[in-house]
Design a protein around this nucleic acid. Structure first.
Lengths: 213, 213, 213, 213
DNA sequence: AATGAATGAGAGTTCATTCAT
DNA sequence: CATGAATGAACTCTCATTCAT
């Protein structure tokens, strides 16, 4: 009968609130410059309470990364299976979907944080590479292989092409987070414009003349 | 006659030695996790000696970044003027030259460090954007404009295309530094292969069929 | 019911305990030679605890001075209003009361500390001058003026006479604190004897002969 | 023949130059806040040179105090013998002479420094008490005794009266050095005015009525 | 003898972590 | 459980002192 009391509900939500607070502050200032007490304060609890949920600052960080990535991975896996139709359009859909999900939100900034902290948290980096980077590459690489096999694409090198597809989006993400604020660097182009340009360029090439060597 | 004494000779080399030590350690572990004393030790001097040359850890960091970027800027400016011939080839040359210079060496890792520390050192970030990022973009953007004006290229959007050219190289740099070691992620592709694929893709597009929409 | 827990009780007393420890040590060795950790240790807490209450050694010092002076000022103001009767007796009462309160206790040593550290803490010195020195001078100066106006005293110069009244007491204070210990200088005279002699001398003069010029 | 060369003359003056530099800086900022290097710089030599003349900062300090006091002592002893005539006038002369010599100049500030540092340099304090304070007291005390013996003075307590004579001058010295600068406390009275008032007060007393008990 | 580069013990301050309440 | 007072290891920076030149 007794439905979960507010106190209980509050407690159940604690871990996620702490993780969110940690993410926000670590994105803002970096892992080292983020004080445990700040994280707790932002989550609305006292310093000591944090340690009832995570045994150390490092573990809090790892949990935060894992949690955010896990959600991302689960969603992505579900979506990846759905794509149908010609590969070129599929690629475009996927890129747009990726940006919509990652470009604005937690998963995106976690990518940046992983890049920054990879060397300080090797196990975490391995997890990230195994669970996020490599699966993504395999997914896109598989599409390109299908495109080549079907004759839709030229016989481009898989790995390099995957990299060329991924890098611009990721780089935009990092760049915006690093330089986008405080009047340092106003990027006038939107992500959508970049994506369109990328697809157009990939499909049609840069040259005006369409003759091939 | 009086040849420079060893003491003096060492003194002259100190700033650079300290800067190099700082760079190596900061790349390795990040700015916050790098202790002043470690920097000094790696440069072969005692803790206090560092402070004879740089008044604080922050100033040491800034000097290290500025010094490495300055060299890079000077060299790049000198090279940029020399390019001749058809734009497509020119672009390729430039990209290859950039990688040769930046891909392996200090300038490259400084790019990564700047990305990471931009929010903690806003003036430095501004300097980096003004002196490195924007000039680079202007250089490449100018080439593309020339290519379009001469009819060599299609009328692609400049900013996005510049981004698409730059991002893969930079991303590779960051990725290698973050995940390339400790068995985390063996990138099987070399930068040269990536560059070749990038140029081929840009010039010819991805599609097997050459008909244009 | 919930009586204040020991932890809480200690917390409430901490600031005063730290201030007392700081006073004792600074009197003993001077501000510069007193280490934060010593202050903490004398107050029975660890180094870090001090910084929960005062954000720096300087602020601890200022708080200590202000706190001790504030108490002194409040008490003095209350007493000053009470004096009644002939001025000569009044002066004597005041001097005796001042010594009883300041001569042995915190307020007195704070006078010494202020003298020593005035140049290193100008704002504090200004506070001390405004809140302690000048009010004291005004109080005594006012009494002397009243004595002159009523015909009780000769027309002596106010400022100089105030100084002549104050200086011996203060000097005794300083002297005792600086040289009174470690067998350096045994002052055989007590403050009470000094005060009596001072009043006798002031009232009757030094000369045996009573003829005036 | 070869009269002392400039180099030699320079070297002979070094100790005194270093002592003077030390005095000036220690008066300005206190012993602890005065860096050895500053002393050397002010004396026009390099840091290391200071250590060729004084083996440590402490020893430099002691030498500085001893040197300044020695000069003072020698001069004072010479002058003390010369006084002749009625004691009252003699006392006045001595006080004026003391102020003229000590009030402006090194000996005066050394008094302040000794007060401040007495507890950190006990041997030095002992030296100061034995060689400066006690002789001065004996000198003045002797005069007062002579005045009493000759019937010129009333039978005042010697020690207290000596203190009452000395304290106002010394206090003025200390006060000016501590609060006289930076708009903290403008003393409007000059030392001469104070001295005059002191002598008048001592000789004639404060009371308008000349009747004696 | 003079120099000033180098040293390293030591001081102030921070903050992750613990634990009495 | 939650709290936040207390802790002390760790870190930055200073400066008296040394010693190769």
């Amino acid at each position: 009968m007794a439905s979960t009391a507010p106190r209980q509900r509050r407690k159940d939500a604690r871990p996620q609130e702490l993780l969110d607070a940690a993410l926000a502050l670590i994105v803002e200032k970096g892992f080292a410059a983020t004080r445990s007490e700040e994280v707790a304060a932002r989550a609305g609890v006292a310093k000591g309470t944090l340690y009832r949920y995570y045994p150390s600052k490092d573990e809090l960080f790892k949990a935060m990364v894992r949690e955010n990535l896990s959600m991302h991975i689960a969603e992505s896996a579900a979506q990846a299976a759905q794509y149908q139709g010609p590969i070129a359009g599929l690629l475009q859909q996927m890129m747009q979907a990726w940006w919509a999900k990652v470009g604005h939100g937690n998963a995106g900034v976690v990518c940046k944080i992983m890049m920054i902290e990879a060397r300080n948290f090797p196990e975490l980096a391995k997890f990230y590479v195994d669970e996020v980077i490599n699966p993504s590459k395999r997914l896109i690489g598989g599409l390109i292989e299908r495109g080549i096999a079907s004759g839709e694409f030229r016989a481009v090198p898989i790995e390099a092409t995957v990299h060329l597809l991924i890098a611009p989006m990721l780089h935009m993400l990092l760049h915006e987070h690093s330089f986008g604020e405080h009047d340092i660097c106003h990027e006038t182009m939107t992500a959508e414009e970049l994506l369109d340009a990328q697809m157009a360029l990939l499909l049609h090439g840069l040259l005006a003349d369409s003759s091939r060597t």
